[in-house]
C-alpha cells in the first residue's frame, strides 16, 4: 500500500496563511511546531510536514479501510522519514524543489514508480500508460476506480488487483505513485 501527496508551493502561499492564530496548533504536534520555528525555512517545513501527514493518511486509511477522517494532529512526523500514527509506523520519502513538495508514504521501504507532472490534465491516463508499460498489459484493459472510501483501485480485465497506487493534485502539479 502506498500514498502520496503534492503541494504546489506557490498556490499554498496564496491559499493558506499558516501564520494565522491557531492554525499550526490544530495540525502539528508541539514537537513539529518546534521543528517549524527553528527551521531556516519555516514555510517549507510547514508544507513538508503537511505533505508527509497527507501521504501517510492515504496509506493508513487504506490499511484500516476506514471512512475519511480529518485528524492531521494524530500523524506524528519525524525528520528521519518516519511517520507514526497510533501504534503504526510508516516510511516517508519527501522531495522538495522551489516549486513543490512531494511525499511518498509506504508501510515498508519498498520499490515504487513515481511521476510528477506540471500542467497535465489527465493524471489517470498517465498512470495507466506507465502501468501498461511496466506490467505489459494493453492500456484499454486497465481501469482506475475509487472504492467507497475514495481510495483508487486498479482493475485489469475488470478484475480488481492488489497493485497499490495513489494520485495527488495541487495547483499546477500532479503526481502518482505505483507500488509493485
Amino acid at each position: 500500500m502506498i500514498g502520496n501527496d503534492i503541494v504546489d508551493l506557490q498556490l499554498a502561499s496564496y491559499q493558506s496563511n499558516w501564520q494565522r492564530k491557531g492554525w499550526l496548533q490544530k495540525i502539528f504536534t508541539t514537537k513539529e511546531q518546534r521543528h517549524i520555528h527553528t527551521s531556516e525555512n519555516p514555510n517549507l517545513m510547514v508544507w513538508k510536514l503537511w505533505s508527509m501527514k497527507e501521504a501517510t493518511y492515504k496509506v493508513h486509511q487504506n490499511y484500516l479501510s476506514h471512512a475519511p477522517r480529518y485528524s492531521p494532529l494524530d500523524f506524528d512526523c519525524s525528520l528521519h522519514g518516519k511517520v507514526y500514527i497510533h501504534n503504526h509506523t510508516y516510511c516517508v520519502k519527501t522531495e522538495t524543489t522551489k516549486e513543490y513538495v512531494h511525499s511518498v508514504a509506504m508501510q515498508y521501504d519498498d520499490n515504487y514508480d513515481s511521476k510528477i507532472m506540471q500542467n497535465d490534465k489527465d493524471l489517470k491516463l498517465r498512470l495507466k500508460q506507465t502501468l501498461a508499460q511496466k506490467i505489459d498489459v494493453n492500456i484499454s484493459n486497465i481501469m482506475v476506480k475509487k472504492d467507497k472510501n475514495r481510495i483508487p483501485r486498479i482493475y485489469i480485465d475488470r478484475k480488481e488487483t492488489n497493485i497499490g497506487v495513489s494520485l495527488t493534485h495541487h495547483g499546477e502539479y500532479s503526481a502518482f505513485v505505483i507500488e509493485y
Binding site: S16, R20, K21, G22, W23, W50, Y70
Partner: peptide, 10 residues
C-alpha cells in the same frame, strides 16, 4: 483543499 479545512474549523 484539505489544508483549508483547518481554516473552516478556526
Amino acid at each position: 483543499n484539505s489544508a483549508n479545512l483547518v481554516d473552516v474549523v478556526l
